[in-house]
């Protein structure tokens, strides 16, 4: 049953991920990326990552992708010419070949079999991956990195505002 759910979600994520890359217009790419992230969020539940599932849906599929769609519509970009058009064809062929090599390499690395747990993983505590567990870790063991993230977000916020300003005075 679990395998069946995983297969379904992986299929959705894989196909929509492919469509993100080959879509001609950026809006469709963004919509398929939302679908990919949604399917990945489902897989996160299978991995007992409840808190990460919530922020995947809210922050990634929600906030970040809305920002993307907002910018795409703001810019009113003409749809690209067929990306596989003649002048680009050689470059694309090389890029795809290199990516296939990368995928094979990663596949070989995976196929060497990790000596971890059997399928499904070890039994974990009932509170594995819950908001409470993550929150406790963030405010104890990972307090310093957690505080740094607030600075990163502040810097990003200021940077984005300065960059998008009409003119600097």
């Amino acid at each position: 049953m679990e395998l069946l759910i995983f297969a379904g979600l992986a299929l959705v994520a894989g196909v929509s991920g492919l469509l993100v890359v080959v879509q001609r217009h950026a809006v469709y790419s963004a919509l398929f990326l939302i679908l990919t992230m949604g399917a990945l969020a489902g897989i996160y539940i299978l991995l007992d990552a409840h808190f990460v599932w919530v922020i995947q849906v809210i922050v990634y599929a929600g906030a970040i992708m809305v920002l993307f769609l907002f910018v795409i519509m703001l810019l009113d970009i003409r749809s690209e010419q067929a990306p596989w058009a003649a002048p680009d064809r050689g470059r694309i062929l090389v890029a795809v070949l290199l990516s296939v090599v990368l995928l094979l390499e990663l596949g070989i690395a995976v196929a060497r079999r990790f000596v971890l747990a059997p399928a499904g993983g070890p039994a974990v505590a009932r509170n594995f991956g819950t908001t409470q567990t993550v929150g406790r870790l963030l405010f104890t063991d990972f307090l310093f990195p957690f505080e740094i993230t607030s600075i990163i977000l502040l810097v990003a916020m200021i940077g984005a505002m300065v960059l998008a300003k009409k003119r600097l005075t």
Binding site: L46, V110, A117
Partner: peptide
């Protein structure tokens, strides 16, 4: 049937290559 670790990693590798 439980999902093996390799299945997750292969999906991850595929998405990364994409």
């Amino acid at each position: 049937m439980r999902v093996p670790l390799e299945a997750y990693l292969i999906l991850s590798a595929y998405l990364f290559a994409l």
